[in-house]
Design a protein around this nucleic acid. Structure first.
Ligand code: MN
Ligand code: MN
Ligand code: ZN
Ligand code: ZN
Lengths: 130, 130
DNA sequence: TCATTATTGCGATTAAGTCGCAATAATACA
DNA sequence: TGTATTATTGCGACTTAATCGCAATAATGA
């Protein structure tokens, strides 16, 4: 299963590198410019997740969102972090807030998925000129 | 919009009162005994959520799960708590672990959805007689 | 250049959840 | 107790997200 380099992979990655947010397949497809099949985008995203290049967030809207995994040491500590989904601008941001919990040792943790939903700082309700 | 008492409502509630876990529409339908339409179960569940009787968790499998909201003061502090989804027994439990985070005041929080996924204490990998 | 096989496009498919509408039944009230 | 009001239900159609099978394409290494 050796990976091959393709224009599709590079295009998807480049879209995600152009933002600090997590994006859905739909949003990526809209922003990507070139025409790539939906199933292909999903397959590329899933492979990136398998390879540890991206992480997947399932929000409370039931949709999957994908974001780059940070590699520098500063960010590595944030392996499990909170996410914020804004209902107004429909974006998901990776928050620099680590998730802490402690479970009885019999539990085996495989994934942590934490999403806070509401209105983000850029869309606050007091904004008069929306 | 005054609520009416119906056998359906009572049946759904009784299923959820019979367990400490969160359940999906599918699981509820299987356990409920009487034959109730899928859309109706969803409508009942949604109404219970609106009324604060149930809370809804969206897990990383993309599905919605519903659990009773505890009313005693002991549990009220756990308004936002972690959930654990076991991939083996396919259940979701409400953990008595509160979710803590702090956001810049410009954020408006409307919902908190935290799910840890893995293998629960009853399904541990060392079990030889599964 | 050629063979291998990972990747892609396409259409069909699955699954969760919602919606419109007509029929039913819980509630309030005469 | 009868009747009107309207919340609730059942049904089927629909929506959306995501996956899958398969044949065609193209990246890679020899
Ligand atoms: Mn993130
Ligand atoms: Mn819970
Ligand atoms: Zn926003
Ligand atoms: Zn389990």
């Amino acid at each position: 299963m050796k990976r091959r380099n393709t224009p599709t992979k590079e295009a998807v990655l480049s879209v995600l590198e152009s933002t600090a947010k997590a994006m859905s397949q739909d949003a990526i497809e809209k922003k990507i410019g070139i025409d790539i099949n939906r199933a292909t985008i999903y397959r590329v995203l899933n492979r990136f997740c398998d390879d540890g290049v991206l992480h997947r967030i399932v929000a409370d809207d039931g949709k999957q969102y994908f974001a780059l995994c940070m590699k520098c040491d500063d960010h590595q500590q944030l392996k499990n972090h909170f996410h914020f989904r804004c209902k107004v601008c429909e974006t998901i941001e990776c928050l620099p807030i680590p998730v802490h919990f402690s479970l009885a040792k019999e539990y085996e943790v495989e994934n942590v998925n934490c999403v806070i939903t509401g209105v983000c700082k850029d869309c606050g309700h007091d904004k008069k000129y929306d």
